[in-house]
Computed example of a mutant assay.
Amino acid sequence: MPTMNLVPASTEDYRRIAERKLPRFLFDYVDGGAFGETTLAKNTADFSKIVPQQRVMRDVSEVQTSTTLAGQETAMPLALAPVGMGGMLARRAEVQAKRAADAAGVPFTLSTVSICSLEEIAAVSDKPFWFQLYMLRDRDIVTEILDRAWGLGVRVLVFTVDLAVVGERYRDVRNGIAGGASAWGRILSGPLSYLSHPTWLMDVGFKGKPHTFGNLASYVPAATNPTQYREWVGNQFDASVTWKDIEWLRSVWKGKLMIKGVLSAEDAAAAVGAGAESVIVSNHGGRQLDGVASSISVLPEVVARVGDAAEVLMDGGVRSGLDVFRARALGASGVLIGRSWAFAVAARGEAGVTGLLTAYRKEFQSAMALCGVTNVADITCHSIAQT
């Protein structure tokens, strides 16, 4: 079946369609990881080691998938993760994803380096969304962005701590996004790639403007394209940040604080000690330090260490509602998905994200029923085995 005529049923289906629709450098930006992409592969492969325990002859005529995340009612234990440069994947993609998330009853998280601004996302609806931020060298900018977010109704801050330096991503180097391509390479990854994807060029390249980092536009007035913004952001990443800086952040942010990028029980405890109500077990989708453990394999030790004191979520490798079930069984309050919704919005826009979230919920509900549980709270370590 031709890919473009495929009726998508899974994350992989959306990925295949997105690969056809996107210029190569953008697809690789979303699809790729650091170095040899070992951790990227581990993130998904390690889910298959978690075996659901099927149970029969239970009354599963009514299965409820709803729960709470960060004090917010959600239709299932899932949120859309922040995706940098999301608006390059589809026309005003973050807006489309927010609409789909609202309709599905799950939280949407806006990235610091999104194309659409906080203000544009807030205008979608009065339903709250989460905001992700990095620690920038200029603390005045951090404070100002936080004030903007608060004024727009954001009450959950997802603070990323695993980006002191940017991981070595070979695909981005080859495509010129990381600045390492030759002049010929930049032509191949730029204009020629655009011309070979005329639908994307018209819908996103022309109709999807402006291609600025909406949240940062006023701080980088000379920038005219995402590459220039990336360079500015790269120079703003503060490699000197410690938990003392998170304590400062806690003192200036009035809402709930999630620390994203924890990959050890020790760091999770430090995050809670610095004032975080939630921690997100994450290796940045395999995009930072290659060779580290998968997020799902680290989850149980983090839950054991801080699960009584803080909400524990995870991201990385979640590709289905069955994976959501597996993560919940290992103690996660919920999961965040990034690549999945990025592929879906690139493939089918808002309808793609809606279809993806509908599939996730059906898969999650099916896994619950076939494992004999009817409420999210009943999903425990007894619902799975590990190989």
Rank of each mutant, 00 (worst) to 15 (best):
T160H: 03
T160E: 04
T160R: 05
T160F: 01
V161S: 07
V161R: 01
D162Y: 02
D162H: 04
D162L: 08
L163N: 07
L163W: 01
L163D: 02
L163Q: 09
L163M: 09
A164V: 01
A164C: 00
A164W: 02
A164K: 13
A164S: 04
A164E: 01
V165Q: 09
V165I: 09
V165E: 07
V165S: 03
V165R: 01
V165G: 03
V166Y: 07
V166D: 11
G167Y: 02
G167R: 12
E168M: 12
R169N: 02
R169K: 05
R169L: 09
Y170P: 00
Y170K: 15
Y170C: 00
Y170Q: 08
R171G: 00
R171S: 12
R171F: 04
R171N: 14
D172R: 07
D172C: 08
D172E: 14
D172F: 02
D172T: 10
V173Q: 11
V173P: 00
V173S: 07
V173N: 04
R174H: 15
R174A: 14
N175M: 01
N175G: 01
N175D: 13
N175C: 03
N175H: 12
G176R: 00
G176C: 10
I177C: 12
I177G: 08
I177V: 13
I177R: 04
A178W: 01
G179I: 05
G180A: 14
G180Y: 14
G180V: 08
G180W: 09
G180I: 03
G180R: 03
A181M: 07
S182K: 07
S182G: 12
A183K: 13
A183H: 06
A183M: 12
W184R: 15
W184Y: 11
G185V: 04
R186M: 12
R186S: 00
I187V: 13
I187A: 11
L188Q: 14
L188E: 15
L188M: 10
S189A: 15
S189Y: 03
S189P: 05
S189W: 02
G190D: 06
G190V: 07
G190K: 02
G190H: 03
P191Y: 11
P191F: 06
P191L: 02
L192W: 14
L192I: 11
L192D: 01
L192F: 15
S193I: 00
S193H: 06
S193C: 02
Y194M: 15
Y194N: 06
L195F: 15
L195G: 13
S196A: 14
H197A: 12
H197S: 01
H197G: 02
H197P: 11
P198I: 10
P198C: 06
P198A: 02
P198Q: 05
T199M: 12
T199L: 12
T199H: 12
T199K: 13
W200D: 04
W200R: 10
W200F: 09
W200T: 12
W200H: 08
L201Q: 03
L201T: 13
L201R: 06
L201P: 04
L201W: 06
L201A: 15
